[in-house]
């Protein structure tokens, strides 16, 4: 059905999407908490920076990543020197690019879920002897689960579709950074690449539909569990 080269692209896309989501989720959760619950000077600026990747051209984000995390970037040179971490031309770099691009979407979904949690329930839990961390783990977090799920799903979807930042930051290396969108892009530049582009397009549609269905299913299940059905 698919050629080995296409399977590689599909597998790489799923891998990048999974790890990008996995790593950005805890940071997104913390950021959403700060934006929804804390007030401090400079909060609007912080707010703006968080949402910047959403409005900047993706190529610009990719370029910014290149000059900061690239081999000779401001931080990248130390990553290489001290930790022997190389992001350019690697899957790790593709994961970073996808995570940065999807971050604002994830933060926003989680933030909305957090703002929808009834603070009165948290107060009630504290009068029952639960400290702040206990309240967060047993009340706030479970009630936010649908929001976290939809945030994670948006992250997966946007990582699967990421193109501009990835190709600018880590280039288009087969088996390393050539995810489905990059493979389709390459295929359209080959004289006989139409069939390949078409097959990968179908795969993209199937993946998108599957994740939407899965999300709907999980959302219903969670809402029943937390009594919001």
């Amino acid at each position: 059905m698919l050629t080995p080269e296409e399977w590689t692209a599909v597998y790489l896309s799923l891998k990048v999407a999974f790890w990008a989501t996995f790593w950005s989720l805890p940071f997104a959760l913390a950021t959403a908490f700060v934006l929804a619950r804390l007030d401090f000077p400079g909060k609007s600026l912080f707010d703006g920076i968080v949402y910047l990747p959403l409005v900047l051209p993706k190529v610009v984000v990719g370029y910014l990543l290149l000059i900061t995390l690239g081999a000779r970037g401001y931080l990248g040179q130390y990553l290489a020197e001290w930790f022997n971490i190389r992001l350019i031309f690697t899957t790790a770099g593709a994961i970073v690019a996808a995570a940065v691009i999807s971050f604002p979407l994830t933060v926003n979904a989680i933030r909305l879920a957090l703002e929808a949690v009834d603070r009165g329930l948290e107060t009630a839990a504290r009068t029952l002897g639960a400290n702040r961390l206990d309240v967060f783990l047993t009340i706030t977090l479970p009630l936010m689960l649908p929001g976290i799920l939809s945030g994670a799903l948006l992250a997966v979807a946007s990582a699967l579709g990421e193109f501009g930042a990835t190709i600018t930051f880590v280039s288009n290396v087969e088996g390393q950074t050539r995810t489905i969108p990059l493979a389709i892009y390459s295929a359209t530049h080959m004289p006989d690449g139409d069939a390949m582009a078409l097959r990968l397009t179908v795969v993209s549609i199937v993946l998108a539909l599957a994740s939407l269905l899965l999300a709907g299913l999980a959302d219903r299940r969670i809402r029943t569990l937390i009594g919001r059905a």
């Binding site: 107060t123 009068t127 002897g129 400290n131």
Partner: peptide, 30 residues
Amino acid sequence: VPIERRRAGYVFQDARLFPHMSVERNLRYG
């Protein structure tokens, strides 16, 4: 003294039961 260490049982006008827990788990929370 922080709320959770006062041991002041509070019954709210709107009950404020935890929607994601059964009645029994609500009762056992405190």
